[in-house]
Write a protein that binds this DNA or RNA. Structure first.
Lengths: 109, 109
DNA sequence: TGTCTCTATGTCATATCCGACATATACTTC
DNA sequence: GAAGTATATGTCGGATATGACATAGAGACA
């Protein structure tokens, strides 16, 4: 994937809507990254909706606060597996996951 | 995840509809496994629809035929990341992915 | 039968991801 | 300012997923 810079970009305020289209990423890679960012948003929303702290969520999924933090900041070292696991652990359902896949969360404009 | 047996089960004819509910898996793990199986089906369908061999797909995504084979047989050593990457590489779109997430592909009955 | 194509399975060295821990920053409330 | 809570960041040893390769099985076609 490359993308060591991705984290910085995202941390700098990027939401989504075509991250890699301006880095050197292939279409396929870009689609995966965008997908991850969407789901990351969904995880944070789901977690906050249920009033869980990152520590709470980490415990529920047998992980650590730092991993959850990295997850939510779009750190490239976090796998899709872990993101989806976090989503479910935060109380999200498969239907909600499906919905999260649809909304491309406000393109920057 | 544990699931060394999962592969055998799936290979033995399982499609989906609650695999882990009868193994010792937690809800969260079960949901992830079911999700993977659904997407695996979607990958195979997408690949075949475009008349691609496993080798073709492997080349498109910079992987190997054996990995694609393992992927499609539900081998536990295959990550969600790779599955989704394969789906996109096979020509699948984000919308199609979203749809694939919805249909729980004919429960055995 | 021989050969071609496609798919499945097993193994292995290496790359990547993991949880854990330490530590830093930010925001409350006292 | 001290203490408490929530989140972010860096690092590290160990765990897991990776592509590559070898090989085997199954079907088509001659």
């Amino acid at each position: 994937m490359s993308t060591a810079k991705l984290k910085r970009l995202h941390a700098a305020g990027w939401k989504t809507g075509g991250v890699g289209e301006f880095l050197g990423l292939s279409d396929e890679e870009t689609m995966l990254v965008d997908l991850k960012l969407s789901l990351v948003d969904a995880v944070r929303q789901s977690r906050q909706k249920r009033g869980l702290s990152q520590i709470d969520l980490a415990q529920r999924m047998g992980s650590s606060q730092s991993r959850v933090a990295k997850l939510e900041t779009g750190d490239p070292s976090v796998s899709l597996d872990l993101i989806v696991r976090a989503f479910f652990a935060s109380g999200g359902t498969r239907q909600e996951l499906q919905r999260a896949l649809g909304g491309k969360s406000k393109v920057a404009a």
